[in-house]
Amino acid sequence: MPATRTTYLPRLPDDQAVAQLLRAFYGTARAGGLDRLAGGGGPVGFDVTTALQIQVLISHYGCDGIVESGCHLGDTTEYFARAYPHLPVRACDIDATRTAFARDRLAAFPGVDVRHGDSADLLPSLMSGMQRPLVFLDAHWGPEWPLAAELAALHTAVGVIDDFAIGHPRFGYDTYDGQVCGPQLVADTLPGLERMFVGHVEADYPLPCLQTGRRSGTGFVLLGLDDTSLTGHPWFAEVPLRPRPLLPSWTTAREGQ
């Protein structure tokens, strides 16, 4: 019954929490635009709905740290440091020049650690000491694609995958050598995972998205954690992975055909 189910829903952020997110999000410089990043840079692709979804997950699951792979010039890293000053934030990038830029940019934030190297190798040490980190996976460029190895390194964690195929034409995704950054890759990499989630693009959010350029889909995997509460949350759409991945049938996508 609906009245019973709502007791399992993660709490939506209150007005004060939304206001804090707003200040941190739009107070972060979009340095990624200087490097011709798709969408002009900005925290989590300058999509505030993704930031709201992450806020719910961090609050509900009591995440004790944030890890980011592929930090580029540090737009998302700085946002995390501003929005969650009580949590350690650790990030990495495979490009030495970008790593140095992000490290210098974030020097004023004592809780931030930015490292240079391959995220597939660095991820275990970046998560060291964290019991249930939120891990933002965005290392989606370069000759090697570390996503499968990154996912395999997660144990008890909230995984957030950027540039993810969600089956809606308005939201872009990455492809490497013909392999889509989408549910099938997750299903193949994590054979014990029965379902995952994507951001619900038709939900009612308390803040409008001001990203007029490229928006990308976001995938969420809950590993070692009870994901039951997300099945009824208005901001997340369930994606069964067995016997085969099944993306949502978006109403707005059908209307646009």
Rank of each mutant, 00 (worst) to 15 (best):
A187W: 03
A203P: 04
Q184P: 01
D162C: 12
G65P: 06
D174T: 05
R5P: 02
V221W: 06
V56T: 03
A96G: 10
Y176E: 06
T252P: 04
L246A: 11
L241E: 00
F197I: 08
P234M: 01
H155M: 03
D174A: 11
H233D: 12
R82D: 08
L9Y: 14
P2S: 01
Q131A: 14
R30M: 13
T175D: 08
Q16C: 07
D14V: 02
D118H: 02
Y8K: 02
R36N: 12
F220D: 02
L185A: 06
G159Y: 02
G232Q: 05
G172H: 09
I161N: 04
D35R: 14
Y84I: 09
G40N: 07
G192W: 13
A29I: 03
F25V: 03
L106D: 12
V135F: 08
T175C: 13
A237G: 03
A148Y: 00
D177E: 13
Y205D: 11
G172N: 11
P169C: 00
M1R: 04
G142S: 06
D104W: 06
G192I: 03
G41F: 14
R98T: 12
E238V: 04
P2C: 05
S249D: 13
P208L: 09
D118L: 04
V198F: 00
G219N: 03
M130E: 04
A139P: 05
L122V: 10
E202T: 05
L222N: 05
G213A: 15
T228A: 13
T6E: 07
T189L: 09
E150F: 10
G172I: 02
